[in-house]
């Protein structure tokens, strides 16, 4: 007896061909994205590596490119990010827990849900102007770090809430039920069964949100409007500047040296961003491993 493969064979080569075309499309997509990123990185590094010196990091801004640095902007960025995290993480995670676990399923809740998603897509300059009118003028916080952090918090809250909600939603129902069946009340179930499980996902949301905040220049243009700062902010009410604004300022100068300086600043910003992310990724993996073994 012989088996007839003929029909299947014809079909098979066609299916394989379609599969290859699909693979080619996917590879093309990866290639385009990677080319863009890599050429950008190469250009920045070539242009700026000479400028990454202790001067760049520890000096205040100056008219002379060889003496100019972004010490004030670096500290301003770190200060603002810290304050933003302090404001955003409790409120964002709290909002996510409320919406997922406690909120009644009615039209008010769905209205809030739809708006949270929409707010995540609003252009950042709009948040800058909102912050300017509410925090700077109305609440009279002046152009302070506090006003900047509050504005940045508004900007990244929707991102964090969405990510945290997804993480909470992904906690298996079986774990909730097990905790309830052992006589847990709502808060104990959330605290002991849901949050530990959702923690890696929430941390990812925090990373994403803070990464977005660290590179944003537009809202800060509206809030600080300052570049030439020759002091380090101490209290949250001090005036400040951040790295993207300093870099933006340098790029718009006519002298070539300042453009090199800007590239150097971008490298420092990237290093800051990457180290922040890797700390968070390491933390997340540690917790994930613990919960998936």
């Amino acid at each position: 007896m012989s088996i007839d493969f003929k029909l299947n064979q014809n079909n098979l080569s066609r299916r394989k061909f379609i599969g290859i075309i699909f693979l080619a499309f996917c590879l093309l997509g990866v290639l385009v994205a990677m080319m863009g990123l890599i050429s950008l990185l190469i250009q920045v590094i070539l242009q700026g590596y000479e400028w990454v010196t202790p001067n760049l990091i520890f000096n205040y801004p100056s008219r002379h490119p060889e003496q100019a640095g972004l010490w004030a902007a670096l500290i301003g960025t770190l200060y603002m990010m810290g304050l933003t995290a302090l404001i955003t993480v409790p409120t964002g995670v709290g909002a996510a827990i409320y919406l997922e676990e406690y909120a009644p399923k009615n039209w008010i809740t769905s209205f809030i849900e739809i708006n949270t998603s929409n707010l995540a897509g609003v252009p950042s300059i709009v948040y800058g102007l909102l912050g300017l009118s509410i925090f700077v003028y109305f609440l009279k916080l002046e152009r302070s770090i506090l006003a900047g952090s509050l504005t940045m918090s508004l900007l990244i809250l929707p991102v964090l809430i969405l990510a945290s909600r997804e993480a909470i939603k992904a906690v298996p129902r079986a774990h909730r039920e097990a905790a309830f069946a052992l006589g847990g009340d709502k808060w104990q179930v959330v605290k002991m069964a849901v949050l530990p499980n959702a923690f890696p996902g929430i941390l990812t949301g925090v990373i994403l949100a803070l990464s977005r905040a660290i590179g944003e220049a537009a809202p800060m243009v509206a809030i600080t409007a300052l570049v030439y700062i020759t002091f380090i902010p101490v209290t949250p009410m001090d005036r400040f500047t951040v790295m993207p604004i300093q870099i933006f300022n340098w790029i718009s100068r006519p002298q070539d040296d300042f453009r090199g300086l800007a590239a150097g600043g971008i490298i420092v910003l990237l290093i800051l961003l990457l180290s922040m992310n890797s700390v968070a990724v390491i933390l997340r993996n540690k917790f994930q491993k613990r919960s998936e073994e």
Partner: peptide, 30 residues
């Protein structure tokens, strides 16, 4: 009621914790 009438489910659903902490879970809650 649930602390007096316990329940075991269709699929094993231990918490992603140690064996010890799983058994201790209900004691801690109560």
């Amino acid at each position: 009621i649930r602390s007096k009438i316990g329940m075991v489910f269709q699929k094993p659903n231990p918490f992603p914790k140690s064996i010890y902490d799983n058994v201790a879970f209900g004691l801690r809650i109560n």
